[in-house]
Simulated scan of single mutants.
Amino acid sequence: MKSAVKISWGERCFAVFNYCFFIIMGCTTLLPFVNLIAKSMSSEEAVISGNVGLLPVGIQFETYKYVLQDSMFLSSLKTSVLLTIIGTTLSLTLTTLTAYPLSKVRLRGRKWILLMFVFTMLFSGGLIPTYLLMQNLNLVNTLGVLFLPAMVNVFNMLIIKNYFEGLPDSLEESAKLDGAGNIRILIHIMLPLSLPVMATIALFFAVAFWNDFFAAMIYITNPELKPLQLYLKELIVSSSGDFLKNNVDAAINMTPQSIQASSILLATLPILLVYPFLQKYFVKGVLVGSVKG
């Protein structure tokens, strides 16, 4: 029997260093989040005095109750959920329909079409012309302005295109011999085989739409259409007295800092719940879709 491979002293030191380094980096990213949780659950006196670290002091849940009863928070949450669902569905559909024909070498003018798409990644019309275009299209202060301009993401389209190019051509040829058309091949053959990259790109789109506040800050002035991230932005930058001005009783055992922390955590929770279901496809989808260029 062959003896086990011996690990040198240098390799052991390197492994220990890697473990320590990544543990430290992991804690660095988690500690602010833990501190946020502690602040959202701590009493008014503890937050004001700065005694809250990684554990809550004087546990209370009134801040969560206050935030969940806030009509503006609920309205913004509804807008963000609708935006994420509609935007992700339409963007993934149109991006896939764009990537599939561009993955075929037989497509006439394929290189020039790809060049036009890549050109938009490097250059744009600018913020003011884009705003004037949205205004002329009567999209300002509508939900559509938050997802229609982002229907086809070129970077995500290239990843899907590269994934399609990696699938065997014999599958499509066999399907055509059986009388299948291009749409049927895409739906019944290509998409089931492309589940990893589709889940990855769907996660990309969902996170982008959920976290986007800049487009809403530019195009949305109607409070009922403001997404959750814009609500949080205004919540954080507004003065301390604005938080509790509509609820005198809420001032008991609560601070603006704890309300900010509770709002941020509640806004982060939905997207965190989605990620575990798509995590197993994430790495495989990105790596396979990025091999070919």
Rank of each mutant, 00 (worst) to 15 (best):
Y131C: 10
A267D: 01
N222W: 02
N247A: 14
S49R: 15
G289H: 09
V274Q: 07
Y66I: 04
S258F: 01
F243T: 07
L115E: 10
G285T: 08
L244K: 05
L193E: 02
C13G: 14
A208R: 11
E173S: 13
L203S: 06
F164V: 01
T29G: 11
D249M: 05
Y219W: 10
V288E: 13
M25T: 12
Q279L: 14
L83S: 01
N247P: 13
M134W: 04
F243W: 09
A261Y: 00
I220F: 01
S76W: 08
K284F: 06
F61L: 14
E11K: 15
F277V: 11
L55G: 00
L146E: 12
G126Q: 08
A208F: 11
Y19C: 07
L272D: 11
K280T: 12
L225G: 10
M72Y: 15
P129Q: 03
I264C: 13
I201S: 00
F119C: 13
K245S: 15
P256I: 07
L97H: 08
L114C: 08
K78I: 03
K280G: 03
A250W: 04
L92V: 10
L265Q: 09
V237E: 06
Q260W: 04
V34W: 14
I7P: 10
N211D: 12
T120A: 14
R110E: 01
L235D: 01
A261H: 00
S239H: 13
M25Y: 05
V154W: 06
L228A: 04
V274E: 03
G293E: 11
M121W: 05
L68Y: 09
N162H: 11
L195C: 08
P256G: 10
G144S: 14
G289I: 09
A46E: 09
P56E: 09
N162T: 08
P192L: 06
G144D: 07
F214I: 13
L54G: 10
I183K: 05
N153H: 15
F214K: 12
